[in-house]
Design a protein around this nucleic acid. Structure first.
Lengths: 116, 116
DNA sequence: CGTCTATATTGACACAGGCCGATATACGGT
DNA sequence: ACCGTATATCGGCCTGTGTCAATATAGACG
């Protein structure tokens, strides 16, 4: 049900040429997912954790929010294609998808001009 | 009234260490501003335009939206610190701020591991 | 000064989305 | 089978935001 694998692929630098409406729709999906303080912290925690993954149980405790709320945010990140989900026994581990990061990185590449 | 000059400065890579709540709040301001399909296209159009700037009159015509709506989106981008505004005669030109782009670029830097 | 054009502001509306409590599901241990 | 723990889903509330029509502001030009 992950929706934006296309978005992960389609990211030319913003400055390269005007985006089409469709591209913008795709990419904004990714960005909306990460443009939230809680989800930013979640991504940051997961990314900077050992192996780029973390257990939900650890993440819950780091916030002053209810467990369902954290679960909701993780779902948003997962559906956007930013996190992979893996269940190991009782626990669930979310893992950052490097492609997503590098897609964003490319999007904001400051190279106004490409060597063609 | 530009609010997030601090945000432009404070962007360590997401993967470097867990963000604080304050940092996340700052950065999410930037990302929220650009996480909209119309604003993405606006940024892209401005960035890929000659000199990294464009006249509002050109931007209005590129969308199927009312003039006040485009004006609103430009204001959001300006207040977030992503665009500079300059009035020349009757026309207003918005210009991309390179620091903003490179801040985002750094934020999503894919350097998971630092040589310690 | 009056008028035309370019851009911004205001007010209203509809919809999206963050949050919680309650509840459901799934798994491990006894 | 039962219970406790970990995570997800549901329903509802409330705030935030994208959009428009109407109006305001500001500059250019006669």
């Amino acid at each position: 049900m992950i929706q934006s694998d296309r978005a992960l692929a389609c990211c030319a630098p913003l400055a390269r040429e005007p985006m089409t409406a469709d591209q913008a729709e795709q990419v904004s999906g990714l960005l909306k997912a990460i443009a939230d303080p809680v989800r930013l912290r979640l991504m940051s925690m997961i990314l900077s954790h050992q192996g780029g993954e973390a257990c939900v149980c650890d993440l819950n405790d780091a916030f002053d929010l209810s467990q369902p709320t954290i679960s909701h945010h993780l779902k948003v990140l997962h559906q956007a294609g930013l996190l992979d989900r893996e269940k190991r026994g009782t626990w669930v581990y979310y893992k950052a998808k490097p492609e997503a990061l590098s897609a964003m990185n490319t999007l904001f590449a400051t190279a106004g001009r490409q060597p063609s």
